[in-house]
Simulated scan of single mutants.
Amino acid sequence: MDKVLTVNFAEPETVMMNLIMDGRGDPYGVSPVTEKDGHTKSRHLVPFVASVQNQAEVLAVFSAGPETWAPLIEPRGNQAPNPLQTTGLSFDASGMPTRLLSHLVLPLSASLWFGEEQIPIPSEPTSILVPDEKLILVEVGETLVAIRTLYAARVDGDRAKLELVVDKTGLEHGATRLTWTHADTEPNGRGTLAIWIRVAEADDRETLREDDNFTSEVTVEDETIDVCVEAANGGMRIVANLEKGDRIQLEGSDPTLEGAVLSVNGKDIGKEIWS
């Protein structure tokens, strides 16, 4: 549940691209907590998620606010049941987040472009400010992933900065990350991220970069966000109340995905296996 968006690559032993919201400074999940029964659990937050997928395109909204960590800071005895057990968070992971970040973890071996500029991924720990209005392209083998930041808000309402971060832990695990910072310290409000992602063949790089048909619009009023895009496969839209966790409107999804167990190229192979 902590990995709210994933992209798997065909290359063996390659880090999975995955997005998580983090309140503990553990972007790669290498510092889990251990429960009394010996099981380890991630320290990642469990945000509100609303998404629409149409073939290889995804429009998604992720948001974490006071309702996300309220159960984590509620006083209770050691024997009290964990209200978040079904989400994968352990009793020992309770406590107020010390920051609020969204991480998109990438393979260290990936080729990376910000707009038309190819960015060599550094081999030493560093951070690079990313112009989030530009299309980001991530190429791994024959697979290309296009990423657009549509909306990224700090808890104070300002724009969340986006950075390419190479750190010691990531280098040790063959990973790097794109990180949006919603709060540098203990969050006192809501952090929200809306992104569009498309997966394509590596040969489509120039086509994706020169796609003049892509348009997007985002409006936020109180706790309600309205995100819509027009892209290669048509329009997609998400309207959601972030505080209530209410997905008011989801439009533009591929109808063949409705009720699918495991869909690959429009075919529900999961349902075939289980039937």
Rank of each mutant, 00 (worst) to 15 (best):
E230Q: 11
S102P: 04
T185S: 14
P66G: 03
E172K: 11
V165T: 12
T256H: 14
A110S: 13
T86L: 13
V33I: 12
P27Y: 06
E217G: 13
T143A: 10
T86K: 15
E35K: 11
P120E: 14
Q55E: 14
G235Y: 00
P75N: 01
G234R: 06
D26R: 09
F214T: 10
M21N: 01
A175Q: 04
T14W: 05
E57M: 05
L108K: 13
R24E: 01
T207L: 14
E217N: 15
P255R: 11
K168G: 06
K134P: 14
N82C: 01
E251T: 12
Q85I: 15
N54D: 05
L129M: 15
E67G: 03
E117P: 02
R237N: 09
A200T: 07
R148L: 04
K271R: 15
S275L: 13
L101I: 15
V199S: 08
V261I: 08
A194H: 02
V7N: 08
I20V: 15
F48T: 11
V138W: 02
D222K: 14
V199R: 05
E163F: 09
L106V: 12
T98V: 03
D222I: 10
T215P: 00
G189H: 06
I269S: 08
D184H: 05
R43K: 13
T215Y: 07
K168M: 08
T256R: 15
L59A: 05
I195H: 06
I238Y: 04
L164N: 04
P27L: 02
V105A: 10
P187S: 03
A80D: 15
A56R: 02
A232G: 07
D92H: 11
L129C: 06
I269R: 07
P12I: 02
P27F: 04
T68R: 00
Y28S: 07
G77Q: 00
F91R: 09
A70M: 10
V7L: 09
R205N: 10
M1Q: 11
V227L: 08
G170A: 05
L84R: 08
F9H: 10
A80V: 11
N78C: 10
F48L: 10
K244A: 13
G77E: 03
H39K: 14
V30G: 13
E139W: 02
V264I: 12
A56P: 00
L257W: 07
